[in-house]
């Protein structure tokens, strides 16, 4: 069933949801949010799009298939533990750098954030994989 209202809404909601999911992902380490909830939001953006335009059209827009996205997320999550090994600390020890300290643009980056990116991609990929298979039935 094609609905013009849903299609227009989905087209405009998608970029908003993607940006919002990134915000939630970034603030996640110390405030409510994080990779899991961000990943759910990212997944929702594309599920909404698929509801409006169909699964096939949505999937044609992806470089990565949802399953590969999940695998990529797992890979990133593992890689986030490796810098600690190189530094001689136990696996997964968190390391942080602060860019532009003491300015408005202060940016704290660290391996837990990389791990969260991994979770973000895994959750989004898994959610889309499950939902798309159900919607294709």
């Amino acid at each position: 069933m094609e609905s013009v209202i849903l299609q227009i809404a989905a087209r405009h909601m998608r970029p908003l949801l993607v940006i919002l999911s990134l915000v939630v992902l970034y603030r996640g380490h110390n405030e409510p949010g994080g990779g899991f909830i961000g990943g759910l939001m990212l997944g929702t953006a594309y599920i909404l799009y698929a509801m409006a335009f169909g699964v096939a059209k949505t999937q044609s827009r992806f470089v990565f298939s949802p399953l590969n996205l999940t695998a990529l997320g797992l890979l990133i999550a593992v890689i986030s533990g490796l810098p600690a090994l190189i530094a001689g600390a136990p696996f997964m020890t968190g390391g942080w750098v602060t860019l532009f300290a003491d300015t408005v643009m202060e940016l704290k980056l660290g391996t837990p954030l990389i791990f969260d990116v991994g979770v973000y991609l895994t959750v989004a990929g898994m959610l889309m994989l499950v939902m798309f298979s159900i919607m294709e039935e």
Partner: peptide, 19 residues
């Protein structure tokens, strides 16, 4: 000590990409 856990995970990821 972490190798018996992360190696299968890495192998699994590679095997998913090349399925």
């Amino acid at each position: 000590l972490v190798l018996p856990i992360i190696l299968p995970l890495l192998f699994m990821v590679l095997l998913i990409f090349t399925r």
